[in-house]
């Protein structure tokens, strides 16, 4: 029998109304309020062994502290499956359900399910951390929401692959997991095309991601007074790759000293980037990081100065979050060094 823990606010937890929204976390060793419907929907496959309750204001005003206290209460129940809410369109309850789902999943790695109205701020804030049933805006849809949450929870606990989330009545999570289909990719592609040509609606397996827009920085006004650094994602490293920079999916960016280095020779530098043919770079690494001409420009006074180092990483299958981290670190260090412009060579 699966052990289930359910999170509720003070209202649904039958503590009281707005006047008791400051209630500190507490727990019950049985289903409460909507938990009774949840237990009924779970049937004999799972048992609501605990309910944890917290006031909306208490958790909204000090989320980290409240979540830590709630986790301590949850620990005692040893859950296999966790439910929160549903929170409908409640503006404090939704983010509270989300924050707790995230924390429970991080600690226990168990399925976490909630329910919200799509415009609840908690739905967007925590979407990658929970499975969220799409509900109406008010508690009148309680019974449907609870039964959908119970059904999904049992399927997740059984390790089932879900249908496209829209069909499951869930909000998008933005979290992609590998799955196995009944047909090969080639068959699915040809069938998708024939359906499109025949006018049958199709559903893409990969909705296009949305990207941040990075506005280009304004031009350096006068290069003669600028301090300009060299940075590359082309996998440039000292020969032999002493720090083991990866050829793809880089886990680090590195900084190498250029003191006394006038030009990058093939004896001293190489690329480890796995995403392009390194032949031309390895013949003359200045082709990747233009140190030779840059030294000339500084000598001729056409560029004010340059720091005596360069940054490098491998931009090959490197996921966005890692790139964002590298970029932030490099930019902060360069800024601290008075750098006003960067030549970033990409491959």
């Amino acid at each position: 029998m699966l052990r289930v823990v359910h999170y509720l606010n003070q209202f649904f937890g039958q503590i009281g109304g707005e006047d008791l929204a400051g209630t500190a976390p507490l727990s019950r060793d049985k289903p409460v309020g909507p938990g009774l419907a949840l237990q009924a929907a779970l049937g004999d496959q799972a048992q609501v062994v605990g309910t944890v309750i917290c006031g909306d204001n208490y958790i909204a005003e000090n989320t980290d502290k409240a979540v830590a206290e709630l986790l301590e209460l949850i620990e005692a129940f040893k859950p296999d499956l966790f439910f929160a809410g549903p929170a409908f369109n409640a503006g404090r309850y939704g983010p509270a359900c989300g924050a707790l789902c995230k924390a429970v999943r991080q600690r226990y790695g168990i399925p976490v399910i909630t329910g919200m109205y799509p415009e609840n701020p908690g739905a967007e804030l925590y979407r990658t951390n929970m499975l969220c049933v799409r509900t109406g805006s008010s508690a009148s849809g309680m019974r449907e929401a609870i039964s959908a949450m119970a059904r999904l929870g049992l399927r997740l606990a059984a390790g089932e692959t879900l249908s496209p989330l829209e069909d499951e009545g869930c909000l998008p999570t933005g979290v992609r997991r590998n799955i196995r289909m009944d047909k090969t990719g080639a068959m699915r592609a040809v069938e998708m095309l024939l359906a499109r040509i025949g006018g049958t609606p199709i559903r893409t397996e990969l909705p296009m991601p949305a990207f941040d827009v990075v506005p280009p920085a304004p031009a350096v006004a006068d290069a003669r007074t600028a301090r300009i650094a060299l940075v590359t994602e082309g996998g440039l490293v000292p020969k032999g790759n002493p720090d083991r920079l990866e050829s793809s999916r880089a886990s680090k960016c590195l900084r190498y000293d250029l003191t006394g280095v006038e030009t990058l020779t093939e004896q001293a530098y190489q690329t480890v980037h796995g995403g392009y043919s390194g032949v031309f770079v390895n013949e003359d690494p200045n082709r990747l990081l233009p140190l030779d001409v840059f030294r000339d420009l500084v000598r001729e006074g056409r560029v004010g100065s340059m720091p005596e180092y360069f940054y490098t990483t491998t931009g090959n299958g490197t996921w966005l979050e890692m790139s964002r981290k590298f970029g932030g670190e490099i930019a902060a260090e360069l800024k601290a060094d008075g750098v006003t412009g960067v030549i970033l060579t990409s491959t």
Binding site: P164, T173, I179, G185
Partner: peptide, 22 residues
């Protein structure tokens, strides 16, 4: 990472592998 496993996400669609929001 699956990346190391030969032809695991082959783009000719040789296998039934896919990814989906979960």
């Amino acid at each position: 990472a699956l990346g190391r496993i030969y032809t695991a996400t082959n783009q000719f669609g040789a296998t039934a592998m896919s990814a989906r929001e979960q």
